[in-house]
Write a protein that binds this DNA or RNA. Sequence first.
DNA 1: ACGTTTTTTATCTAGACAGCATGTC
DNA 2: CTAGATAAAAAACGT
Length: 735
Amino acid sequence: MSKGLYDIPSWATIETRTLAKLAGVERLFEPQYMALQAGVEKGENLVVAAPTGSGKTFIALVAIVNSLARAGGRAFYLVPLKSVAYEKYTSFSILERMGLKLKISVGDFREGPPEAPVVIATYEKFDSLLRVSPSLARDVSVLIVDEIHSVSDPKRGPILESIVSRMLASAGEAQIVGLSATVPNAGEIAEWIGGKIVESSWRPVPLREYVFKEYKLYSPTGDLREVPRVYGLYDLDLAAEAIEDGGQALVFTYSRRRAVTLAKRAAKRLGRRLSSREARGYSAEASRAEGAPRSVAEELASLIAAGVAYHHAGLPPSLRRTVEEAFRAGAVKVVYSTPTLAAGVNLPARRVVIDSYYRYEAGFREPIRVAEYKQMAGRAGRPGLDEFGEAIIVAERLDRPEDLISGYIRAPPERVESRLAGLRGLRHFILGIVAPEGEVSIGSIEKVSGLTLYSLQRGLPRETIARAIEDLSLWGLVEVKGRRIAATSLGREVAAVYLDPESVPVFREEARHLSFDNEFDILYLISTMPDMVRLPATRREEERLLEAILDASPRMLSSVDWLGPEEMAAVKTAVVLKLWIDEASEDTIYGEWGVHTGDLLNMVSTAEWIASGLSRIAPYLGLNSKVSNTLSVIARRIKHGVKPELLQLVEIPGVGRVRARILFEAGYRSIEDLATARAEDLIRLPLIGPSTARQILEFLGRADEAREAQAREMLARKGLLSYLEGDAVAGEEGE
DNA sequence: ACGTTTTTTATCTAGACAGCATGTC
DNA sequence: CTAGATAAAAAACGT
C-alpha cells in the first residue's frame, strides 16, 4: 500500500522533520509531497486543492513552523466554524511541543487581542481583530486560510475575501496558504493570492460512489448490484449492510423532523442488534445533558442506547458533542443528520447515504449543488479503519440513475465565484478599510479592491463601490472629502461592534417612532436588525402571533397593516425573546413555540450582541442616554434570560437564571442580602449545593467561611452515608 | 345525534459568524 | 414550478 506515499525529501528543513516526527508522519501523502516541492517551507504562497483527509492540515503546519523559524512574527490559522477552531486547537498541541504557544480566538471566548505566536481564529474574528488594530497585518508572517473556496459563499464569502485582499495589500510579506476542496478553478484562487497551485485528487481511503434506485446500486463504472431487502426500508437496509460489514453509516437528510423520525424507526428495528454496553454509557451521558428539554434528552438517550442517533443544529451543544463522540467511538452505528455534519467536525463513516439531494429555498425545492454533494460524499471512509468508503445518493421515483451519475458523481463541482460585488458585502469591505485607518484616499480603496478575487474575475466594480460609499456616507458612517474618505466616530463604533452598517439606518428609522418604554417593541426592533437570526414562523402560528402583538404592543398593530413572512419571523423572534427575559423555562419555550435549545441559544447570543451593539451606537445617533441605558439593560437581561430584579444576583459566578430566582424567592434579593446569609441556609436551598454556596460566598469575599461550610457539609453527608450504610432506616433528608 | 375511521387538503422543509467580559443547571 | 411526510380538516361510516 505504498501507492501515493513519498519519503520525506532529504532537503526538507529541520523544522519540517521535527514536526513530522511529533505528528507521527513517516511518509508523505501526494499533496504533502507536492507542497514541499512547491516550496511551502520557503514561504511560497500556495493553494492546496485536495480532498479532505489528504493531509492538508499538515501542509499548513509545515508552513507555520518554517515561517515562524525563518521570519519570526505570528501565524494565524483561519477556519470557517468555531467547532473547527476548537478541533484544530486540540490537534495542534504538537506545536506547543515545538515551543510554539497556541491561542484560540473566536467570538464566544474573548480575552483581548490574542498574543500567542500561533492563533486559530474564525474568519470574522480575524476580520474584527484587523479592524481594531490594523498593524496586526504587518505582524502576521503566515496566514492559513482553511476552506478558502468558501469565498464563493454568498453571506460569509465577502468577509473572507476582504481579509485576504487586505492582507495582500498590507506592506508585510506574509505567506498565504489557502486550503481548498477540489474545485475547477483552484488555479484562479492561486493566481489571486499570487501563489502556486498544488492539486491532487489523492485520498487516503478510496471512494466508491453509487446511485440508489429501486433497491439497486448503480455505479459510474456500469456495475449494478442488488441491495438485500431485509427491512424493506431503504435507509435501514443500506445502513444495515454497512454495519454488517463492520462499518458505520451516516445518513444525510434535508429536514430535522425527518432525521428524527428515521432515527426513531431505525432504533426500533435495529435496536436489539446494535445495543451495547458502550452505547448505554453514552446514552446515560445524553440523558444527563444540560440545558436540553427533558423530552429531547431522554428521547435521544434512548436512541443512543440502541446504537442510533440524530444530529441537527437544534440540539444543544452538549448533546451534539455526545452524539459525535458516540459515533466516533463506534458505539453509535447510524447517525441521521442534517447538513450540520457535512461541514465542520471531522466525522467520517464507512457509508454515507444522501437521502435527498433536494433542499428548500425561498419556498421552492431545488437540487443541491455538486460541491455540496461532494462535501457529504467526502465524509465516506474512515482512514485506518475502512478499506474504502461508499457514498450513495438516493434517486427519486422519476429520476434516471444515469442522470444522477452524470449530474453529481461525474460532475465537477461549481467554480469558485466571488460574491463581493453585492452592496452589503462591499459596504462591509469598504468600512473595513476606512475605519481602522481613520482616513483613506479613494486610491487606496481602489488598490485593495484591485487585489480582490472579484477584480481578477470581473474587473473593478467601480459603480457598486461608488454606491456603497454613498450609502455609508448617507448613513453617517463616513465622510467624503474630495478624494479622501474619513470614518466618522459613528463609523468607527459600528466597525468595532461589528454590526452590519445597514443597522444604522434601520435603527435610526425605528427609533423615530419607538418610545423605548415597551419591552416588546425593543425586542422587535432587535429582531428586525440585519444581523439577527430570525425564527421562521409557520402559517399555523400566525394567528397566535397576532394575538401576541395585540397583547404586547397595540401600537405596532395599528402602525403595521400587513405582515409578510419576514415580519412574522421577526414577531415570533421577539415573542420568544420576551418569554426568555420573563424567565420562561426552555421547556415552556420549546413546548409553546417549538423552538429547540440550539436555536434558542443561537438566537439569544445574537440578540444580546445586537442589543449591546445598539446601546453603544445610540449616543452617536443623537438619542438620549435613556435609550442607550434601556438597551444595555435589555442586553444583559437577554444574556441571562432574567427579569430586571435578578440582574444583580446573576453576576455571581455559578448563579444563572434558575438559581438566581431560587435565591430571590428565598429572600436573598441582592448582593447585600447575601453578604449576611448563613452558609447552612444557602446549602439547604434547592439546586444550590455546598459547592455553589461556596462559590457564592467566595464571590462575596467570604472565602474562608465558604471553605469551612463546604467541609462541614461534606463531612455531614459522609456521616449520613455511613449511617445509611449501616442497618438503620433511611432518613428523609433530601438536598 | 354522535363517536370513530377513512379520505382529502393544507402545511412544512439547513446552518451559524460577530462585541464585551467571565462562567449555567 | 419538479416531492413527500404528516397534521388538520372534512367526509364517510357505524351504532
